Lab assay of single mutants.
Amino acid sequence: VSVELPAPSSWKKLFYPNKVGSVKKTEVVFVAPTGEEISNRKQLEQYLKSHPGNPAIAEFDWTTSG
């Protein structure tokens, strides 16, 4: 189950709350306009370098507050 949070234009930000008793931590995933899922800052940096014209990296908020 995921919750969609505010994201930069043409992107989606999905929040996957951890299940009770789960060892997996809460996860935030950005979905690029191409449909590619980005789950960490390093991936995001690589994606933005190879896909010019996207929002600046500073516009991506990895917190769950939206």
Rank of each mutant, 00 (worst) to 15 (best):
I38Y: 03
A58R: 10
L14N: 03
N40R: 04
A58D: 14
A32W: 01
T63C: 09
K25A: 12
T34M: 03
S65Y: 11
S22E: 11
E27D: 10
K19D: 08
P6V: 07
W11F: 03
P6I: 07
K49M: 13
D61S: 08
V3K: 08
P6E: 08
P8F: 05
T26F: 14
V23H: 15
V1E: 13
W62I: 02
G53P: 03
A7W: 05
W11C: 03
P55K: 03
V23S: 14
G35M: 03
E27T: 15
T26A: 13
S39F: 15
N18M: 11
F30W: 08
V28C: 05
V31W: 06
K25P: 10
G21E: 07
W62R: 01
E4A: 09
E37T: 14
I57M: 11
S39T: 14
P8I: 04
K19L: 14
K42W: 14
A58P: 04
W62V: 02
R41M: 14
A56F: 06
G66I: 11
P55C: 03
Y47E: 00
E36K: 04
P8V: 04
V29F: 07
S22W: 07
V23F: 12
V1S: 10
W62K: 01
K42Q: 12
F30P: 00
P33K: 01
V1D: 12
N54M: 09
E59T: 06
V1R: 08
G53W: 05
S39Y: 15
E45N: 08
P17V: 15
W62L: 02
L48F: 03
K25V: 11
E4N: 08
R41V: 13
T64I: 14
W62G: 01
L14T: 04
V23A: 14
L5P: 05
I38C: 04
A32C: 02
Q43S: 08
F60D: 01
F60T: 01
K13R: 05
F60P: 01
I38L: 08
E45S: 09
T34D: 09
K49L: 14
F30R: 00
D61F: 05
P6N: 07
K13S: 02
V1G: 11
N18V: 10
K42R: 12
E36Y: 04
N18G: 13
L14W: 09
L44H: 00
V29G: 02
R41A: 10
E59P: 02
D61T: 08
H51T: 03
V31A: 03
W62Y: 03
F30Y: 06
E37A: 11
Q46R: 11
E36P: 01
P52V: 05
S2P: 15
Y47D: 00
K42A: 13
H51Y: 06
S2F: 15
E27K: 15
V28D: 00
L5C: 09
S39Q: 10
S39P: 06
V3C: 14
Q46P: 01
S39I: 13
D61V: 07
Y47H: 02
Y16E: 03
K24T: 14
S10E: 11
D61W: 04
V20E: 12
A58W: 15
L5H: 06
